[in-house]
Amino acid sequence: MAGASVKVAVRVRPFNSREIGKESKCIIQMSGNTTTILNPKQPKENKSFNFDFSYWSHTTVRPDGFGKQGQVKR
């Protein structure tokens, strides 16, 4: 498939009721198209990944926006 390209998106979803009930903490951070998974036990072992699109849809509101389902469907 010469000339084909794939675009990859990631979205942080809101916590479900089980996660809320367990008082889970969000361990994902997003900055632009970079998504970082935080390791609370080993902070030096955080993992970062780059995506074509990154959407923040977690329950905590961010100043740079909120990824609504309509945006994700593009």
Rank of each mutant, 00 (worst) to 15 (best):
P63W: 10
H58W: 15
F51V: 11
N33V: 00
I28G: 01
F66Y: 14
F51T: 11
P63F: 03
G21I: 04
R74A: 09
A9N: 08
A4N: 14
K25W: 01
I37L: 15
E19V: 08
Q42A: 13
K47M: 05
I20K: 09
G32Y: 05
S31D: 15
R62P: 00
H58Y: 05
F15C: 06
I28Y: 10
K7D: 11
V72A: 05
N33C: 07
T35N: 06
G67V: 08
A2L: 09
M1D: 08
K47T: 11
S5G: 04
K68G: 12
K47D: 08
R11A: 10
H58G: 09
K73S: 07
T59W: 06
K47H: 08
V6F: 13
N46Y: 05
A9D: 08
S31R: 11
W56Q: 13
G3P: 00
T60C: 07
Q42G: 01
K22V: 00
K44Y: 05
Q69H: 06
P43N: 04
R18C: 09
S5L: 06
R62Q: 12
C26L: 14
S5H: 14
V61W: 10
E45M: 08
Q71M: 13
E23A: 15
G65Y: 02
F66I: 04
I28E: 06
D52V: 04
F53H: 02
Q71D: 11
P14I: 10
A2H: 10
P14C: 09
K68Q: 14
N50C: 02
V61T: 11
P63I: 10
Q69N: 13
N33L: 00
N16A: 05
T36P: 02
I20A: 11
E45K: 15
K41R: 13
G32L: 14
D64I: 01
V6N: 07
R13H: 02
N39I: 10
S5Y: 08
S31T: 15
A9C: 12
D52W: 01
K7P: 04
Q71R: 03
E45A: 15
M1S: 11
N50W: 01
K47P: 02
T60N: 13
R62E: 07
T34N: 06
V8K: 06
G3A: 12
D64P: 00
Q42R: 15
N39H: 10
G70E: 07
V72N: 01
V72I: 09
Q29C: 07
R62Y: 05
F53M: 05
P14Y: 03
A2M: 03
T59N: 12
